[in-house]
Design a protein around this nucleic acid. Structure first.
Length: 669
RNA sequence: GCCGGAGUAGCUCAGAUGGCCAGAGCAAGCGCCUUGUAAGCGCGAGGUCAGGGGUUCGAAUCCCCUCUCCGGCUCCA
């Protein structure tokens, strides 16, 4: 065996003693640039203190990268589990992975955690961090792992599941497959927390890697606890999950916590009430809401835009009822597959009726109202259809997840040679919509392929449809990812996401191919050959749900809508009652150009009325007094930006009308 | 549906250990003030303390049930 090894990094090389660690290699290679938490060796995550093999390509993982933060968070999760073990006798550990923006760890301590528990745990974590315990990696056999975690039933379950091949690996289980699973007898890794004096503090089954020691976690905090099913399955016991977060610096963590606070302040339920946009009266029942006049104006802009655009793009509007005989949903299969998510039926004249959970069957009825020719295709039927779904009680959330909501729903019936065009058009349409409503380009496009339990279509059909979706998205030039097995049982789909002004991502648009309903309703068109052919059916909702999209906009704009969407676009404030006439004249001039404007002629002080206009987030406040009346001008105070005095009324009108007509969203968020 | 937390005036919140007619600010109403760029002053009014049972001499406060909301889990055709 050689006494030296050679390591590489980005084209340079260094010779080192055998058994040199990743950190030694990085230093020798002059590849240390900032705060690092771990390394990669030939692309695999690697502990800094773990020896590297001869010939390895070594790189650093930085603390401020996504990968680096995940390692920090995973190490923090271990720290938390150790603290919980210290404080609670017989604590049983589930799993504790890093997640987006933080980490969690699931425990069973025989009762839920209280807020005081979390404080104590966090204090204990700080103490443990100061002990500078090292994280030491060790590979052990399955038998040794089972023995080591003899009193940890959940850990043993993972070991068993990995061992018998039920699950390939898990964040807290076996190392990556290529590291040594020999015929169903995989090697497991444990990470041991060892104090500076060499005594063992704690250990956990874990794939790693970790930071070298517990004092190398710059900032962490615990956030909340909640119940969570073991292994995410409803038929499993409920453990108690603690969520926390960790960051590469106190500053980064503060920024994140500030963002969370900001998100809380933007909650559409709170803004919806403050700005009188929407109302959730208890009398209506959970998941049901109403649009107040202010919110209704915003919604009308959304609806007008989508109606005009669908017409322009060759869709044909239809209107359909909110209820129909139950038979319809027997044919469609909704009762068979989703009965528990539909409102119960009602008996009328001996027939059972149901509130509609989807619009599709109605659009199919419209399609089948007469014989269809191949010459007519594609037929694009479109409707703002309000549907009612009996969502489980724990999931309703304002307008983001409601029991009654309105889809901008369309069903496109087309030939197989038209599918790619149609789907690509839908994606471009969604793109226009996001841009128009101030959400920018899609942040993520995901194509979901055939799930295990697909109840419709055949192998060739699925393959062709999935390929059609891929071709269509590729034509748009948008990057996309695939979610294998995440399609609906009746067909593959594209989900499109957008990011809001504070970086949160929302799934909005869905474009789906449906094999099920055309078969169940036995729909057909007459082809050039005179025979009947089954059309493709593309289901698509671009806003998704009008209510949900509305809520996303409220939160993204923080209630301060761009002028074209704002309920009240201009407020005119006369400095004194004497100038009420001029204020009315200004308002009338604007109203004549379809600007939504009000005069605040109340006897409150000027400062008070300006404050009122500002807190109502009205885009423009016009202050008018003697000098303005005389010169025919206005003093413009925009919601954002600087005030301008002596602006000629005509100039302001032209400016605001242009802003409205061009649907300017500016840099509003 | 499951785990936990919470529900006091339109809104935001006070009301330890049960004890005089349940309080404040803001908003809304009415007066006064007549205003030049984010809160002028005053006065009244407003509450089945989520709802229903119970314990007690006495319940916003303690117990039970129900409803609703919040944070998660699960689910989302």
């Amino acid at each position: 065996m050689s006494q030296t090894i050679t390591v590489h990094h980005a084209g340079s090389r260094a010779d080192l003693e055998a058994q040199s660690t990743a950190i030694q290699a990085l230093k020798a290679l002059d590849a240390v640039r900032g705060q690092i938490v771990a390394a990669t060796v030939d692309g695999h995550p690697w502990d800094l203190d773990r020896p590297v093999p001869d010939g390895a390509e070594v790189a650093a993982i930085y603390a401020d990268s996504d990968e680096g933060r995940a390692i920090l968070r995973h190490s923090t999760a271990h720290l938390m589990a150790q603290a919980v073990t210290d404080l609670f006798d017989d604590a049983k550990w589930g799993i504790g992975p890093p997640v987006e923006d933080g980490f969690y760890y699931d425990f069973d301590i025989g009762r839920p955690f209280t807020a005081e528990d979390l404080e104590r745990i966090e204090e204990r974590m700080v103490e443990l961090a100061r002990e500078k315990q090292t994280y030491q990696r060790e590979e052990i056999t399955r038998e040794a792992a089972l023995a080591e975690f003899a009193d940890q039933p959940y850990k043993r379950e993972i070991i068993q599941l990995v061992g018998d091949g039920t699950i390939v690996s898990d964040v807290d289980a076996a190392p990556d497959a290529d590291e040594g699973d020999a015929d169903g007898d995989p090697t497991f890794t444990v990470y041991r927390n060892v104090r500076p004096d060499g005594t063992a503090a704690w250990s956990d089954l874990c794939r790693g890697p970790h930071v070298p020691s517990t004092d190398r976690i710059p900032a962490f905090t615990l956030l909340r606890s909640a119940g969570a099913y073991w292994r995410g399955r409803e038929d499993q016991p409920m453990l108690q999950r603690i969520y926390g977060t960790a960051w590469e610096s106190k500053k980064a963590m503060t920024a994140h916590l500030t963002m969370l606070e900001e998100a809380r302040k933007r909650d559409h339920r709170k803004l919806g009430r403050d700005l009188e946009l929407v109302h959730f009266p208890e009398e209506l029942g959970p998941g049901l809401s109403l649009f107040l006049p202010n919110g209704a104006i915003v919604r009308k802009q959304m609806e007008d835009w989508i109606r005009d655009e669908t017409l322009r793009r060759g869709y044909q509007p239809v209107y359909t009822p909110h209820i129909a005989k139950e038979d319809l949903w027997e044919i469609s299969g909704h009762l068979e597959n989703y009965a528990e998510l539909m409102y119960p039926g009602m008996e009328v004249e001996g027939a059972a009726y149901r509130l509609k959970p989807m619009n599709c069957p109605f659009h199919i009825m419209a399609f089948t109202s007469r014989t269809r020719s191949y010459r007519e295709l594609p037929i694009r039927l479109s409707e703002l259809g309000t549907v009612y779904r009996y969502e489980r009680s724990g999931v309703v959330n304002g307008m983001l997840r409601a029991r009654g909501f309105t889809q901008d729903d369309s069903h496109i019936f087309c030939r197989d040679d038209q599918v790619v065009d149609e789907v690509a058009d839908c994606v471009e349409f969604a793109r226009d919509l996001y841009r128009t409503f101030g959400l920018g380009d899609p942040s993520r496009v995901a194509i979901s392929t055939r799930p295990e339990k697909s109840l419709a279509g055949n192998d060739e059909g699925w393959a062709a449809a999935e390929q059609a979706l891929i071709d269509a998205v590729e034509r748009t030039g948008l990057p996309y990812e695939t979610d294998p097995g995440e399609g609906a049982f009746y067909g593959p789909k594209i989900d499109i996401h957008a990011k809001d002004a504070i970086g949160r991502e929302w799934q909005l648009t869905t474009v789906q191919i449906d094999f099920n309903l055309p078969e169940r309703f036995d729909i057909a068109y007459v082809g050039a050959d005179g025979d009947k052919h089954r059309p493709y059916m593309v289901h698509r909702a671009l806003f998704g749900s009008i209510e949900r999209f509305f809520a996303v906009m409220v939160e993204s704009f923080n209630g301060a809508f761009p002028t074209w969407l704002a309920p009240e676009q201009v407020r005119v404030v006369p400095v004194a009652a004497d100038f009420g006439d001029y204020a009315e004249k200004v308002a009338t001039t604007l109203a004549d150009r379809q600007v939504r404007v009000h005069v605040d002629a109340s006897d409150a002080t000027l400062g008070n009325r300006i404050r009122e206009a500002q807190t109502s987030k009205i885009p423009y406040t016009l202050v008018v007094g003697g000098s303005e009346a005389e010169a025919g001008t206005v003093a413009v105070r925009p919601y954002r930006g600087d005030q301008r005095k002596d602006v000629p009324l005509d100039a302001f009108v032209a400016e605001v009308v242009d802003e409205i007509l061009t649907r300017a969203t500016g840099d509003l968020a």
